[in-house]
Design a protein around this nucleic acid. Structure first.
Lengths: 126, 126
DNA sequence: ATAACACATGAACACTTATTCATGTGTTCG
DNA sequence: CGAACACATGAATAAGTGTTCATGTGTTAT
């Protein structure tokens, strides 16, 4: 029995049909493939940066911490919308905040975020 | 007229109410704020990595180029679903492909993608 | 204590999106 | 040419998402 026939099971006959060049690669990767759970969390992370309003909020905060009403003014949406989106960003670990009096000052959570935004901006301008 | 009163227009009285500490910052940022168009494209880029299936596809391809049926097997979804998602990834400039006979071999488009995935994975494991 | 302010949150709606099913397209082989 | 294969694509449906509106919560000032 060769490796080919091992993988050429009922469920995946195509690997012999198409030459099966990648069988070894597929076997190797199948073992150290990212887990469903990890993939889920990565997807959730990027999902948090996948909305126009949230991207604009994040780029605001790259300039420094600011309160909700400042973000509201810079982004130009309602206070409620900003709050809802800040919640998403907070849950994704992209922003943090501190209270000062009546205001909450939001800021970028860590350097990962800045880096990802920078790479994203770089990627689209090619 | 001070800068404060300039910004303390009918539309944004809150800047005086809450102390207006950030008025200078907001003014500066308002000028070099990311454009709506740029933000939109950045959002679209990350949106392409914001789905569980697409994330798994991308991590597959980190191991090297492979054909659709290999991806199908590793990710464990239908061929149609893989094709649809590959289309999204292609349009976002995250993957490319070459034809070899009947098969199409997909691969990561550039190093930006690998970097973003690496940072993403790093971010969620904290 | 009461009012005003800064912000959060729940519900509802319009809109988007991922999968499935069926079918179409391009390629190779006999 | 025609059949089989590898993959793409259009339509439909179910599930998810962002905004708005109304209201709730926590803080400060009078």
């Amino acid at each position: 029995m060769t490796d080919k026939t091992e993988l050429n099971c009922i469920d995946c006959p195509h690997h012999v049909e198409c030459g099966g060049k990648n069988i070894e690669l597929v076997k190797r990767l199948a073992e150290k493939m990212i887990t469903e759970e990890e993939a889920y969390y990565v997807a959730e992370l990027f999902k948090a940066i996948s909305d126009l309003t949230r991207v604009r909020i994040l780029f605001c905060l790259l300039g420094g911490e600011m309160c909700v009403c400042d973000i509201q003014e810079l982004v130009g949406v309602t206070q409620s919308a900003v709050s809802h989106q800040l919640r998403v960003l907070k849950q994704a670990g992209l922003v943090k905040y501190r209270r000062e009096g009546k205001s909450l000052y939001y800021s970028i959570a860590d350097s990962h975020v800045s880096t990802m935004l920078a790479i994203g901006l770089e990627h689209i301008s090619e």
